[in-house]
């Protein structure tokens, strides 16, 4: 049974019609047209679908549209644009911190969640902050550099 849900995504309000148990991931990608969160596993094991919900890192493959309703959802698109990149996005480009890039959106979101809580993480904290995200290409050492660069930039 389709129902109407009011979502706040990247600061904008959206009304979508979906079954209550529909994963937020599919609503974002196909109904709202925000394709940065990716399907990777559907089981909270890879982080490709990461978004922020009320500022906390969440797995959009496992959060239902019903549970996301009324909360602040932030996707990669909400951080910055090519013209006005968020410092984390700028750092990922500066360090060329990607290979295929399928996990990149989730990693940038995980980095945002990490730096919001801990603006000056050491290597151990960075590793822990990204431990729920998988990268298969092996871009990890560049991602570490990007996170450190972003932390420096954000600290001004």
């Amino acid at each position: 049974m389709s129902e109407q849900f009011k979502l706040t995504i990247n600061g904008k309000s959206h009304t979508v019609s979906a079954d209550a148990d529909t994963p937020l991931l599919y609503v974002l990608r196909n109904d709202v047209g925000l394709v940065s969160p990716k399907y990777g596993c559907g089981q909270e094991q890879c982080g490709a679908c990461n978004v922020l919900i009320d500022g906390e890192k969440a797995f959009s493959c496992s959060v239902s549209v019903k549970d996301a309703a009324g909360k602040q959802v932030t996707t990669l698109e909400g951080l910055g644009t090519p013209e006005q990149p968020h410092p984390i996005q700028a750092a990922f480009i500066a360090e060329q911190a990607a290979q295929c890039g399928y996990c990149t959106s989730g990693l940038i979101i995980a980095t945002k969640a990490l730096l919001d809580k801990n603006p000056n993480p050491d290597m151990d904290a960075i590793r822990v902050g990204l431990q729920d995200n998988l990268c298969r290409c092996g871009a990890h050492s560049r991602v570490f550099r990007a996170v450190r660069r972003a932390a420096r930039e954000l600290a001004g």
Partner: peptide
Amino acid sequence: APRLDIPAKVFGGRAFIQD
């Protein structure tokens, strides 16, 4: 040289077949 395909992947562009 910076990779041509990376910006779309960092800003949520439609970079993949799924997109």
